[in-house]
């Protein structure tokens, strides 16, 4: 068992040694794999940031329900209570006509106009905050129902653009999965081809090993470890690419965010995202190596 482990460690290190011996070729392969992995990883970061932005504007899904002028405050309270019971509604806030008026007076700009009026022209208002997970279609339905209520004058629902943004994000997310799948195949092909050349270069060695009684597993192992290192190296390269990209974009994003008076922080690749990139690289590297090995090793039979 210890011997077995030693063999694997030796194989593993020897495979790395061979890559280090010809750094230019190895780096080139690793860079190609890295870029192929960095593309979906980078896009994923962009979408995550898009989601955070959309989430920040979640309040834009609030809708206002204006009661008819002259309706009692008690009526507003009853309506609010029934709305609170709705499963799509997170919170209902009642802004009484008096409070709204006081608000206006405080804000100053309408002072002159308001003092000229005998009575308060403002209606009681309900501000309804839907739950974040509430589907847009049901909210629209709720708004329509509310509009039919005899005490309600008008319902203002302004969620269309947020819905559109979410739809775009969903579209992009699907696109990323598609791209990630294609690029994973590309990585498998790249590793497979590199290892095929590697096998061709070490043909004499493989033949001799087979003559001396090496099992298929013995011959296969070094190449699988080569695939392992290509995958790991490519994954690390991809992480560096994404991190550099984030560092480059960080400054401009902060400035843009400041200009809009928002405090938006660029989201990085989370730990799980980084692990996915590394793991994806590893799996693709191993699969590529396995393909090459199973295709070409059996074709090499010793001759004397």
């Amino acid at each position: 068992m210890r011997l077995w482990l030693t063999r694997h460690v030796q194989n593993c290190l020897a495979a790395m040694g061979r890559l280090v011996q010809r750094p230019a070729g190895s780096l080139l392969t690793i860079a190609v794999i890295g870029i192929a992995l960095a593309l979906p990883a980078g896009l994923n970061v962009l979408v995550r940031n898009g989601e955070v932005l959309a989430g920040g504007w979640e309040s834009a899904r609030d809708f206002s329900v204006y009661l008819k002028p002259g309706e009692e405050l008690a009526q507003a309270a009853t309506l609010a209570k029934s709305l609170s019971a709705n499963s799509n509604v997170d919170d209902v806030e009642i802004i009484s006509a008096e409070a709204a008026l006081a608000d206006f007076q405080q804000s100053g700009s309408f002072e002159g106009a308001l003092t000229g009026l005998d009575n308060n022209p403002l209606p009681h208002t309900l501000v309804v905050r839907p739950r974040p997970e509430a589907p847009a279609s049901e909210l629209a339905e709720l708004a329509r129902e509310l509009g039919k209520d005899t005490s309600v004058d008008q319902v203002r629902l302004d969620t269309e653009w947020v819905e559109r943004l979410n739809a775009i994000l969903e579209f992009v997310r699907r696109g990323i999965w598609l791209a990630a799948g294609l690029l994973a195949i590309a990585v498998v092909v790249i590793v497979g081809n590199t290892i095929r050349l590697d096998i061709e270069n070490r043909r004499a060695e493989i033949e001799v090993a087979k003559l001396l009684g090496a099992t298929d597993a013995f011959v296969r192992r070094p190449f699988l470890y080569t695939g392992f290192w290509y995958g790991l190296g490519g994954g690390l390269f991809a992480l560096v690419v994404v991190l550099v990209g984030l560092a480059v974009l960080g400054g401009p994003v902060a400035r843009l965010s400041a200009l809009y008076g928002a405090s938006f922080q660029l989201q990085g690749l989370a730990g799980s995202g980084a692990l996915t990139v590394l793991g994806g690289g590893l799996v693709a590297g191993l699969v590529g190596a396995w393909f090459a090995v199973s295709q070409h090793l059996t074709a090499i039979q010793p001759k004397i």
Binding site: A204, L211, G213
Partner: peptide, 19 residues
């Protein structure tokens, strides 16, 4: 079973097949 069979055998070749 071929690898095990060959491990029990010593082989010398004309071109010696050294690496």
């Amino acid at each position: 079973a071929i690898p095990e069979h060959r491990r029990g055998l010593g082989m010398v070749f004309q071109d010696h097949k050294l690496l």
